[in-house]
Amino acid sequence: MNSTMSLRVFAIIIAVAALATLPLWMGGIYYINVASQILLYAVFALGLNVLVGYAGLTSLGHAGLFGVAAYATGYMLQLGYGHTESILVALLVGVASMAVYAVLSLRSTGIGFIMITLALGEILWGLAYRWISLTGGDNGINVPKRPAPFGYSLSNATNFYFTTLIVFLLVVVVMAIFVRSPLGAALRGTRDQPRRMNALGYHVWAIRFYACLFSGLLTAVSGILFVYYTQFISPQTLALTSSAEVLLMVIAGGPGTLLGPIVGAGLVVIVKTVVSGFIERWNFLLGAIFVAIVILMPDGLVPGTTRLWRLATRKRAPVAAKTEGAP
């Protein structure tokens, strides 16, 4: 127990150190930008994972929320407000939209939930596309400048990476706390045994509603990072394919794990941006990878690898495993 614990702490320290020094050993700005993208999509995937992994509610409309936060930022900046106000309003708008989503879609679970969130996502996409006076339609909204808090200009790729990294680490810590908190435990309870939870006196709907708000907040955070990263937002970002993409990140990495969505985000972003430069049919490759994951590791890359790892270590040291397992 103690040795695995220290191993885990060691791994976390290594990972954080690697991420913190990434601009030093990663060759070139391009790869630093790819890393920023991975981190911001990881935040998005972590947000969706709250629902998919811990609440057992699969949403196909999260790109809508992501886009709403991005549009809110872009529109506020266009109106001439400062970055702080714009970000705060975008967070509020993101969470408020999620609240509306939740009120409408939490009337059901399973397929019903998927279909309602899908419909809501499409409505938001339609609004972005057709409400031209607000969103600029197909032409989108430009964000001419990234902010420079305390003179720390984010237009520099490395600085933007560090900012994204800080936000990302904060989100990971908050997620870890959330998962261990009584609310997180209750949420998993509503996923596995909603009727028993109800019988035990838990308000299942309210627990799910809070989870939705939390997921909406993280999604809004990633949407804001996205709009500052690309400095541009247009309806394509809200399309169903984006929702599906982030859902695939969660499913490929391993829903219901802390590390899974991060690994999934890394996989999808790398195939989409880096590998697509070499292979024209990268969509096909991504599809093939997912099929492989579904066949070989149906519960995702992270749980699958963990299982393989355990299998390997158990073979090598069966005695140790036995004594550890004994009371």
């Binding site: 070139g28 690309t230 400095q231 541009f232 247009s234």
Partner: peptide, 21 residues
């Protein structure tokens, strides 16, 4: 040659690839 996929975010990423990498 880089394929943007006809979407703005993809165009940005690919422009970065061309210029930065």
């Amino acid at each position: 040659s880089a394929d943007t996929g006809g979407n703005p975010a993809g165009t940005k990423t690919k422009a970065q690839e061309l210029i930065e990498r």
